[in-house]
Amino acid sequence: MSISSRRVVATAFGGPESLAVEEVSLAEPGSRQVHVEVRASGVNPADVKSYARAGKPSDLPLPLGYEAAGVVRAVGEGAADDAGPLSVGDEVIVFRTRGAYAADLVVPDSALTRKPAGLGWPEAGGLLLAGATAFHTLEATAVAEGDTVLVHGGAGGVGLAAVQLARLRGARVIATAGERNHDLLRELGAEPVTYGDGLLDRVRALAHDGVDAALDLVGSDEAMDVSLALVDRDRIASIANFTRGPEEGIRLLGGGPGADAGDQLRAAARPELARLAGEGRLRVLVAATYPLDDAAQAHRQIATGHTTGKIVLVP
């Protein structure tokens, strides 16, 4: 028997106007697969980028979304995660997968992590892509207790996770953001600075003893120039500047050309990230939730680049 569901797809390459919700039939889970009824799906800039540029017509319609959270509704033979065998009714986080903007998913058990009971559905659905990316940036730059870390883009989804994870490691965090987000960053333990002209001087005024590591989460020339002026190249990482990054010899992380995807490292971080979020030590700030039918509006919001926290779709 097949599973009837709905999912969001891009029907063409270009803008959010190409997004549509389609009916789809999923096969019952096979060996080491699980049917998850989705309760929340995280929206990320990578989702927008996946169809913003021209691609292969054969890829259309293109399913969107890399992360979700939901309830196990059926379990294939031998399905288990890091906590043991999976059962109907288990609450799980799905990452990494494809087509997560959906009411139902059938995924391999390797994509699942148990959802802590105290973690809300929108928070769980938006936790792991940004959280695992932030974890990767800290590992790549060897951030440790006593370090001073400069986080460019501290109020974005990855930035908020990086600020908190760096603080949990015992690092001092200086984070760039617009003034409207300074109070939030202070609440999370960071020292905010406003980006724009004079950023280098403002950071130097705060960090009299220097900066040990820099995380470029925005991809601007300003972020690159300030990082290079303050930090050794081997402790700078960028998830966004794939133009100057190779020229400057810094670490590139993620899905861009020449970048370290860090798939194994990110996957291994999932249980710890879930545990920290469940304990309230890693907060997932949800900026807005939308139904699947309003995915285009969610993408318009995230494309502004000025969203504080995560946007989440709720089927």
Rank of each mutant, 00 (worst) to 15 (best):
A161L: 09
P16V: 05
E67L: 03
E17F: 11
V34M: 07
D47T: 03
R96Q: 12
Q33E: 15
S50P: 11
P192N: 11
G189F: 00
V24N: 08
V88I: 15
A267E: 13
A190W: 03
Q301I: 03
A166I: 08
G42K: 02
G254T: 08
Q264E: 14
D47P: 02
A100C: 08
G198L: 10
S5W: 03
A102C: 02
R6G: 02
V8A: 09
G30K: 14
L105E: 00
V151F: 08
A207E: 02
V38F: 07
G255K: 13
A240L: 06
T307K: 06
Q301C: 08
P291D: 08
L285W: 14
A144P: 09
A68I: 01
A229N: 08
G262Q: 11
D209A: 15
G262N: 13
E222T: 07
V151N: 05
A240P: 11
A52G: 06
R275M: 07
A269L: 04
V8K: 12
V75S: 05
D47M: 11
P57T: 00
S2L: 14
G118T: 13
V92S: 01
A296M: 01
A74H: 07
E28H: 13
A261M: 13
L86R: 04
N181W: 05
F95L: 07
R186W: 03
T11R: 14
T289L: 08
R6N: 05
R7H: 10
R233H: 09
V48D: 10
E22V: 15
L138V: 12
E247A: 14
R53L: 13
R235G: 02
A207F: 04
I174K: 04
R204M: 10
T141E: 06
S220A: 10
L150K: 01
I93H: 01
D201C: 14
P257C: 09
Q301F: 09
N44S: 12
A83C: 10
A162I: 05
A268H: 14
T137I: 04
H35R: 14
G157Q: 05
L60E: 03
R39W: 02
A40C: 01
A68M: 01
A132N: 03
G125C: 02
L165I: 01
V88G: 10
D263G: 12
S87E: 13
